[in-house]
Design a binder for these strands. Sequence first.
DNA 1: GCCATTTGGTTCATGGCGTGAACTATATCA
DNA 2: TGATATAGTTCACGCCATGAACCAAATGGC
Lengths: 163, 163
Amino acid sequence: MNQMAEKNVSDTALEVPDYQLKQFQELIMRLFQCCQERMQYQCERFELPDAEFRCLLLFGEERYLTAKGIAHKMNVVKSRVSKIVDGLIKKKLIQRIKDPEDSRISLLSLTPEGYKKLSKINEFLQDVHHQVLVQMAPDQRKAVLTNLDILKASMETIKEMMV
Amino acid sequence: MNQMAEKNVSDTALEVPDYQLKQFQELIMRLFQCCQERMQYQCERFELPDAEFRCLLLFGEERYLTAKGIAHKMNVVKSRVSKIVDGLIKKKLIQRIKDPEDSRISLLSLTPEGYKKLSKINEFLQDVHHQVLVQMAPDQRKAVLTNLDILKASMETIKEMMV
DNA sequence: GCCATTTGGTTCATGGCGTGAACTATATCA
DNA sequence: TGATATAGTTCACGCCATGAACCAAATGGC
């Protein structure tokens, strides 16, 4: 990324007209904002703080999680995970059992209520995304997805450069 | 949005195959993550807390801003703006002058240092977005932008439904 | 087998983000 | 001129996130 700032616009300016650049910045900003607002709406709707919400979603992928694993998946430090897990346990959405093999480890899993809540959340998420897609004609939808994938690839490439 | 949950998948399921829905959720999530990480990177790079960073950007649009105006643009309450503005003033990036017409109002504007910092930030932002776009062939880029615009429109429509 | 080190977690202090309520000071309107 | 509205500040609160200090269990080398 440090090289990026040096490698200047001049040598590639011809390739990307200015209006496209502006348009792109605007689009990305708006999309980002949509996602943020949706996130906020979700948290209110399901009465969970953002971090707990995101943590709960992780249990859709795996039956048992450890604090360490959550820290890794959520990309936060372990002390933060302690807090989040505390919150979810206090709300009786997850439970903690000792790993019989290694008593340092707490295995975390959904309670029945947690499972129910997670199901509701996933249903909601699907619903929202479905609503977005269903507004498009089938081939338009296909084109959008294809191009979104191209964009994602490009953005992730650039992200890697931002160490 | 409350209606959304009720209106169920069944009546439109045919229109959006499940794999598209999954793909879309995944894509959006990844894109959102990219944006978030970029935001974080920027804040570190320019040594500004997120809120102050976003606030500084507003001065690219208008020469003078009031606390109230900032609150509106940033979508936060005025007490929060007080803090943010304090921070930027302490860093000597913006300055405060009394409105001669109405002494309740503080007019906020960039200092020369603030202007310089903002320019650097904008340069960086353009650079990043340019890097993303320049990876695509010209007509691919055009297609991506067109489809992104369609997506944005659809997402904003749905957002409106989430009161 | 035992002590040093590693590993999984918790707690605490710190700082940023954001809200709502109480308050000050100025402006405006009846 | 007095009631009300407006612009800002301050404060208490809660969530997000980090890093350091700490505890307890596991492991590894001698």
